[in-house]
Simulated scan of single mutants.
Amino acid sequence: MTRNTTLMAMGALAAAAVLNMMATGTAMAQQVRNCGPRELVVNRLADRYGETRQSMGLGANNAVLEVFASDESGTWTVTVTSPEGMTCLIASGQAFEELVEALPAKGNDA
């Protein structure tokens, strides 16, 4: 490799590293903005979207996963709350439907 080619390659790697740090910083900043005290998050989901808790479960490290939805508008939000009470929005969308499906018969892969 010539000196110029090596310098260009090093410059490209440095630029890629900076872009990666910027993207990671942006993702981390967005994550921080999408989290808050549970009471505040639940109140906003109720006030802005009419969503109430539809289901919940216990996840890894005692985190609580909850699904909030509005029967009226069909909007839904999935949250995870840490044991310390910090709630983060994980996903949201529209066209929520409550389903209760029977388990398939034993021995049936479907």
Rank of each mutant, 00 (worst) to 15 (best):
R53W: 01
G25V: 13
L89D: 04
D71K: 14
E98N: 04
E66D: 05
L45V: 00
N62S: 13
A9K: 15
A16C: 07
L89C: 12
N43A: 11
A60P: 13
T6H: 11
T2E: 09
E84W: 10
M1K: 11
L103Y: 04
S82C: 02
S92R: 06
E84P: 05
G74C: 06
W76C: 03
V32L: 14
T26K: 09
G36Q: 06
M86D: 03
A12T: 02
V41T: 00
E72N: 04
T24W: 09
A63Q: 13
V100K: 14
F68H: 03
A69Q: 07
T24C: 05
S73T: 01
G107I: 13
N108K: 09
A110K: 07
G25I: 04
M28D: 11
Q30G: 11
T79C: 11
G59T: 15
E98W: 07
C88R: 04
S73W: 00
N108C: 14
A15E: 05
S92V: 06
M22N: 15
E97M: 14
N4W: 10
M8P: 03
Q94P: 08
V67H: 13
R38E: 02
A29V: 02
A95V: 04
L99P: 04
S70N: 10
M8A: 15
E98H: 03
M10R: 04
V67N: 14
Q94R: 06
E51C: 00
T52Q: 02
T26S: 14
L13N: 05
M8I: 11
E39F: 03
P104R: 07
M28R: 12
G50H: 00
A15W: 07
E84T: 04
R3W: 10
E66A: 08
Q31G: 07
D71Q: 09
E98M: 04
G85M: 02
E51V: 00
L13K: 06
A63P: 10
A60D: 09
S92Y: 12
R33E: 07
A9V: 04
R33D: 05
V64R: 10
N20K: 11
E66V: 03
R3E: 14
A63W: 12
R38P: 03
V64G: 10
C88W: 11
A9C: 07
F68V: 00
E66T: 05
N20Y: 10
M86V: 00
G74E: 08
E72I: 03
M8Y: 09
V64M: 07
G36D: 05
K106G: 14
G85Y: 05
T6G: 14
